[in-house]
Design a protein around this nucleic acid. Structure first.
Lengths: 344, 344
DNA sequence: AGCGCTTACGTAAGCGCTTACGTACCCTAG
DNA sequence: CTAGGGTACGTAAGCGCTTACGTAAGCGCT
């Protein structure tokens, strides 16, 4: 049987350049021990032949991979797609390839995807999405990542802590705080929160920020109605329905992410509740469509694309004794979905 | 030096099961020539050891890859992220991994990414995004793909023809036709098109549908103002500006995709042009946010996620003599961004 | 009994790289 | 002039799999 691949191999380059395999390998890897002229000649020949190293052979021989695995909940969720864009950008600049997995927001499936990626021998694992309040929920993933890192793998988390790896972390609490303050500045007293699933750290952190802002102004926590659904458009719709039905005095809804806010706005529209005249709405993340919603959404801007890049940057650096934490900036972006509380 | 990877290898499985490497390999690959009992024992041992084959070794030995490369313009463009979601879904079901590349809408960079993927020895290449009217623009990619397929690779295109590979194709012309008809039914006479870059087949096809609809109703083509920018939000904004300035009589804008429509709506909002009262707007694709825009967008629905799945399905099937073409359905979704032409 | 065929398994040769180690050569110091 | 040491390169042993081919046993047939 003929060779499967017709692509030029390292031997071909070596022969054409009249050197040995080892020298050719060294020259192309830019390692020392090859004279400048010979190295140049080898590179020249490689280029002429259109030689590109077979990554499978290379990885098998050296053990060093050049592919990064990225786990997101859903690539068609704009929050994650922007993160992915950042990761892919930087990876591409570094000559790395990105393998994407979707966890579908299911911790078991996520763990399975993580194992799969590691079994596929990716060199770097990047994991995004929220973590869980209950540390036991994360312990399996944590153990998997620890073992992976001990075998030379590198990992980083995006918007997620308690995984024992480097992490780039937005200040969810400060963001929630800023949103609540903004609404109170507009005179809102009865505020409802459309929250993602209970048990997620992202939910707890953003919620904690909201609560602390209320507390600072001496507002009773009873002013705050929290409805837990999930971080999807449908979750936002459901939460809004529930808020409208069970908490009639509400004048402002804090959706804990923009995708939920989209659902909230959608429900308010179909229920003919004018925004912001009767109800103010805020989101979190500032996904790129937030500015194009009806009405455009007041939200907290997170630099998702940059977060993706930063996470990969962290993972590319040598590992430190203690996991690093890179905070990300955040910014309150005021648009048309918020206004003064209606006078009742 | 110790072995790089501490993971169990095939030899470990073979030893524990007291068989040879070959038998273990055959059993785990489910190939014949192994008695049922022995095969069961081997699978049992493999499971106990947590054995997962090293894909690098496997690929190197067999030449058959299990990773699919996907080229999109931008993962954070909702059209592409929905396609990617479909591809990743199906790939995951099949135990395949997806490597994503962004071409950034640059044909040269796209070609480079394609070469890179092929050099990385992916088994399947999926390429999305529009093709080019000028066949010479595609010839390099076409040649690359042909060579790739001749070496046993499989490829499929999404929303793109003339690449000499299997393709899943929306009926862009019919979609454009339906949009124009819808607007004419509302009495619009002066229609403008916010088109993506000239030279793209997607643009030409959708435009052709629009023109043919006008022709059928005996409307002069002069009623149609076409502004070429590009398929981005910014492109939509720019096109809308130009239409507003240069074609004052316009009462309806056809954006050739939803992302442009978002830009168009954004400009109309800031220029205080009420939609649909003074100006109707339609898009194309029906990305998931289209329903949440201000106002919700009338558009042509394309099944992006399914298109992604279908493309991978095609690529997984044995190659046929002539490239296959899978049409996709489309559907006019009427929402709030279109209404009767204003009476002047 | 002897032949050939099938079945079940083992042997070993790669796949295309990396890299530890070996070797030839030249330079300098003693 | 030779020992010692550096530099530049070659040799060959893997990395962990797949698979062509070899072999031994079991079967039915003449």
């Amino acid at each position: 049987m003929p060779r499967a691949s017709q692509r030029p191999r390292l031997v071909d380059v070596a022969e054409h350049a009249a050197v040995s395999l080892a020298t050719a390998s060294r020259a192309l890897a830019g390692r020392e021990g090859v004279s400048t002229e010979v190295a140049d000649r080898i590179r020249q020949v490689a280029h002429e032949l259109g030689y590109v190293a077979n990554p499978y052979a290379r990885t098998l021989a050296s053990g060093a991979t050049s592919t990064v695995g990225l786990i997101v909940h859903q690539v068609d969720d704009p929050y994650f797609s922007e993160i992915a864009a950042g990761v892919i950008q930087l990876a591409s600049e570094q000559g790395l390839l990105v393998q994407i997995c979707q966890s579908g927001r299911d911790p078991d499936y996520e763990l399975q995807q993580l194992r799969h990626l590691i079994a596929q021998r990716v060199g770097i694992v990047l994991i995004s999405g929220s973590g869980y309040d209950d540390p036991r929920m994360e312990s399996a993933a944590r153990a998997e990542l620890a073992a992976f890192q001990n075998h030379g793998g590198r990992a980083a988390a995006i918007g997620r802590h308690a995984l024992g790896v480097d992490a780039v972390l937005p200040d969810n609490e400060a963001g929630g705080h800023a949103l609540a303050q903004h609404l109170m500045d507009f005179g809102h007293r009865r505020i409802a929160v459309a929250a993602g699933s209970a048990g997620l750290t992202t939910v707890a952190d953003r919620l904690a920020g909201v609560s602390s802002a209320l507390r600072e102004r001496g507002r009773p926590t009873t002013d705050l109605a929290v409805v837990h659904t999930d971080f999807t458009r449908g979750g936002g719709r459901a939460a809004a329905e529930q808020i409208l039905n069970d908490h009639p005095g509400t004048t402002a809804i804090i959706a804990l992410n923009d995708v939920m806010a989209m659902g909230v706005l959608s429900t308010l529209r179909s229920r003919r509740v004018p925004v912001p005249a009767r109800m103010s709405v805020v989101g979190f993340d500032d996904v790129s469509v937030a500015a194009d919603l009806a009405p455009s959404l007041t939200t907290i801007r997170l630099p998702m694309t940059e977060m993706g890049r930063t996470a990969l940057t962290l993972a590319l650096k040598p590992r430190t004794a203690r996991p690093r934490r890179r905070p990300t900036g955040h910014l309150l972006v005021v648009r048309d979905s918020t206004g003064p509380a209606p006078i009742t």
